[in-house]
Design a protein around this nucleic acid. Structure first.
Lengths: 137, 137
DNA sequence: GTAACTGCAAACGCTTTGCACTCCC
DNA sequence: GGGAGTGCAAAGCGTTTGCAGTTAC
């Protein structure tokens, strides 16, 4: 999605285009792992010294509302924000908490089989695999 | 698992067998949905008037430690506690929050296929499907 | 008897909310 | 110009922690 499409999506839904919203969304996009609200805050406050955590939370809800990101609650600590809206597996390191997305054809096939067994059409899904990453071993 | 095995499991790991622990674990077992800490508290305080939320949280951690239950963090509200430790899909209603476990043989087969593609051996997994249940439609 | 557990209350951390000021359109 | 957005601080809520009294073994 280019900037023009993004701007149009905001405005079509009655949201204004602001520097903070763009910065937060682009930051999430560039990070492969799925940052927490505070990680976003820590990284962006250098460039945007007046930025507040409150704004970050409000923006994250807006982005979720627009279908641009997914919110993931975990057992410990904070929620994570994932800009990949397609079917994928969240590979979660149980030690350092880093997450990366795993996509494979097999997963899509499995998912389609499962869905065809269900009577209802789901609104969304989430698949996590918990493991220990190479850095933590 | 019968009571004797359960008692033995507690004691083998240095935990004492108490009325509260048994009541909390059995309550989770009998509920098909995955209750929150507060739901457990509300239901059990009639039979155990002195029971406190603090004890419930401590017990839930103990049960998790023993591998008897799984803790599931969600986007909104509280964590849920699931006594099914085998591979299954959590069917989560996005309106009322009720969860039931969905088990299918073909899921296991496909899951093993996916796992064999990974280099690492995972420590656990979680699969959620979000939908709208019949009562909420 | 003693180490572990319970119950209570206070503390904690993440997230949300309210409100005055500011900015996009 | 006006309504939406931001920044700040206070409040909210689920969960954790500390400690004195109690219980399992």
């Amino acid at each position: 999605m280019d900037d023009q499409e993004l701007f149009a999506l905001f405005r079509k839904n009655g949201y204004k285009v602001t520097a903070q919203r763009l910065a937060i969304y682009k930051f999430i996009l560039t990070r492969g792992d799925h940052p927490t609200a505070d990680q976003i805050y820590q990284e962006l406050k250098t460039d945007y010294p007046t930025l507040s955590l409150g704004t970050i939370y409000k923006t994250l809800h807006t982005l979720k509302e627009l279908g641009l990101i997914q919110e993931l609650g975990f057992n410990e600590g904070s929620k994570r924000y994932d800009p990949d809206m397609e079917l994928h597996i969240n590979m979660v390191c149980t030690k350092c908490g880093t997450i990366y997305d795993y996509k494979a054809e097999n997963v899509k096939k499995m998912w389609n089989t499962i869905l065809s067994d269900l009577r209802t059409k789901p609104k969304g899904q989430r698949i996590d695999i918990y493991y220990e990453c190479d850095d933590c071993k």
